[in-house]
């Protein structure tokens, strides 16, 4: 009986997600909700690699930054049409995935985590120093967009609406990706990659595809970030910020679209409101992460599923 609750949720996931964020908007203010939405897209991109394929990246801010800088540079040098700029960001996401992916996806575990981090560090350096002439170095870049048709991105509501639309699109895409044979393949790679090769699949190719999809969606979230803030600085891709998306993935529950959304919203809520009350933010994050690792590995979504489907929560521990 309670299983059917989950079934219904799955079936109407898209309108439900939309409704949830529409309800959040008046509570949190529109701009902040937009922030939440964009972060959720980033978490989804991350979760495709971490939750589904089992590859933990410690450098995903880079791919977000690639999208953000692509938009800013495109808007400044080519055209201020926001849609073309977003296309440029997506293309850059694909390009960075194609460039780094073949090296990165050959590794797993700790190596995968740190090689992403190393590239993230290089990207940070490029934005801050090497390309400072174009990126504005530490000051970053501000962007202005043309109004296209009735879509004026100076208007908060436009950005909100567009971001929400984008999120729905990404959720739809993610659900298709993860419920396809490809989705099963990713989960199999997570569990035992060698065995998948003996099912006749060239795993390298599919890992690369997943990586490129992830960098592209991350770049898309970066593009939206700059629509929302109208500026980008190297601090957007600071390597120490990677822990944010890891935290979100864990707290929501890795390896599920709903988990990623729940995690994105939870992390944003905590990081937006808690520092007002808690002085020592990093310490809080650290302790919370330890608790998640040791006591709450299933995350919120796993917890809810276990509760609803009536399987013992006790079974966990």
């Amino acid at each position: 009986m309670s299983q059917s609750v989950l079934k219904t949720l799955e079936k109407f996931s898209l309108p439900l997600v939309a409704a949830a964020f529409l309800l959040l908007a008046p509570i949190l203010t529109v701009q902040r909700t937009t922030d939440f939405i964009i972060f959720c897209i980033f978490v989804l991109a991350y979760d495709l690699l971490y939750g589904y394929m089992g590859r933990l990246s410690f450098g995903h801010m880079l791919y977000l930054g690639v999208g953000a800088y692509a938009v800013a540079l495109f808007a400044e040098h080519v055209s201020a049409n926001p849609f073309f700029a977003i296309l440029a960001a997506l293309a850059s996401g694909v390009a960075v995935g194609l460039l780094l992916g073949p090296i990165i996806v050959r590794t797993t575990g700790a190596c995968f985590a740190l090689i992403n981090l190393a590239f993230n560090q290089v990207g940070f350096f490029l934005a801050l120093t090497a390309f400072a002439k174009w990126t504005g170095g530490e000051d970053g870049m501000a962007t202005f967009f043309d109004t296209v048709w009735i879509l004026n991105f100076d208007n908060r509501y436009t950005v909100f609406g567009f971001s929400l639309f984008s999120l729905i699109l990404v959720v739809f895409l993610m659900r298709r990706l993860t419920m396809s044979p490809f989705g099963i393949l990713l989960r199999m790679i997570k569990e035992n990659e060698t065995r998948v090769q003996f099912l006749g699949y060239n795993t390298h190719r599919y890992k690369l595809l997943a990586f490129i999809l992830s960098t592209t969606i991350a770049a898309f979230s970066g593009a939206l970030t700059i629509l929302n803030y109208t500026y980008v600085t190297p601090s957007f891709i600071d390597t120490t910020r990677n822990v944010e998306v890891i935290f979100a993935s864990l707290i929501g529950g890795a390896g599920s679209v709903f988990g990623a959304l729940l995690g994105g919203v939870s992390y944003m809520a905590i990081s937006n409101y808690l520092p007002n009350y808690v002085q020592r933010w990093e310490m809080f994050l650290g302790i919370a992460l330890l608790l998640l690792v040791f006591k709450f590995q299933t995350g919120l979504w796993g917890f809810i599923v276990a509760r609803v489907s009536g399987f013992g929560v006790e079974k966990d521990r």
């Binding site: 044979p181 997570k190 099912l199 699949y201």
Partner: peptide
């Protein structure tokens, strides 16, 4: 593949063939 339902273990093999 322990983390998948039994049937899902076969899907990719069947797809491949």
């Amino acid at each position: 593949f322990d983390t998948l339902p039994v049937l899902d273990n076969l899907i990719l093999a069947a797809v491949r063939a």
